[in-house]
Design a binder for these strands. Structure first.
Lengths: 190, 190
DNA sequence: TCATTCCATTAACAATTGTAAAGAAAATGC
DNA sequence: GCATTTTCTTTACAATTGTTAATGGAATGA
């Protein structure tokens, strides 16, 4: 249950058996079906999710359209992060793309974990930094790359998601319409 | 010299006179002319800058073109943040847009300040959060808004910069060409 | 197993932005 | 004060993407 979690955190900090016991007590295991909203727009995010299995996406809505901001794979922490940080209503929705197996912790329990285990501060900071860096990479790609270049990079880094995620969701994540993405794919296969 | 700094930090934490003395000893005051590169692409960012006066921009280069990622005004902390966090070579350049008056602290001195004054952890975390949130706002605008909408929002939030920053730099920050921005400005004034 | 829904591609036309160049005004530097 | 450089707008044409609709195949659910 915590194998994936420790495989990930071991790269950052090592926990003793005692610390692991405390950590495991702070999380709950949850199986969630696809298309389930973990955090809704307009509501405050109160939980953080470690993905053992499945996919989760973060999206915005505008004029009735859903526009994907991020897709979280296994072994990532998923959340509507700014809402979690500030405890303000989220402008995003966090929703499962597949049936998921998650390790869930509340914001409150996380604070208590920070108090109880100082090493958690390091892990928390690393997770936050990674989150910032992910956002910077996406933003710089929007700034620097054409839609076709964004698609190419996506394929290079997350090609497996083409098989798991509907293309219209990937298109919205790349900032283009499904029609445009289809044209790009056709151009690239010629 | 530190008035602006404390005006900003007082919203987050209050420092005692003793703490202020330590803080002031960790920073240096620097006057920097416009078009000066504070951090260069390919180099590691080793300093953080509080802007007392002036403007600083963060930009990327691609195919010989400079594309602006952020513009820092007075009373903000400027840096090539991911390079500073990870101590890896930056993919961005940090450069002054006007003659500036900066309070400068090195990454090393900042770490020491964190050790010496626990309240600095809170400030540091808040600054990091604000940085993440800024990035999210820009990214979500790229995702959700057309170039015209981005221009409108920019004017609403930073209209003063239209007088201080060359329009071609603002255009690149908004992800469009100067010609397109000129067309948008014309359309909006009709 | 079949009806319904969802997904992906394609076509036609519209809209917006990019590119290149020109010209005028403002800013800069000697 | 003047020459040079930079900035900004405009124009003409090109390119890419958006929009709408249609079609066929895959997935889903009863």
């Amino acid at each position: 249950m915590f194998e994936g979690f420790y495989k990930y955190t071991e790269q950052i900090v090592s926990f003793t058996e005692k610390e692991k016991a405390i950590i495991e007590g702070a999380f709950t295991f949850r199986q969630v079906p696809k298309k389930f909203k973990l955090t809704e727009e307009g509501k405050i995010a109160r939980e953080l999710y470690f993905i053992n299995k499945g996919l989760v996406r973060l999206y915005y809505t505008k004029d009735g359209e859903e526009i994907t901001g991020f897709i979280f794979k296994e072994h990532l922490f998923a959340s509507s992060y700014d809402s979690l940080l500030r405890q303000t209503p989220s402008i995003q929705t966090l929703e499962t793309l597949e049936d998921c197996e998650l390790l869930v912790i509340t914001a409150k329990a996380l604070e208590e974990l920070y108090e109880a285990i100082p090493k958690m501060q390091v892990l928390g900071r690393k997770v936050a930094e990674q989150r910032f860096i992910n956002g910077q990479m996406i933003l710089s790609s929007f700034i620097l790359d054409s839609p076709e270049e964004r698609y190419k990079k996506f394929v290079a880094q997350h090609g497996d998601l083409l098989l798991r995620v509907p293309h219209h969701i990937i298109a919205s994540y790349l900032g283009i319409t499904p029609v445009s993405m289809s044209r790009i794919r056709k151009r690239m296969s010629e």
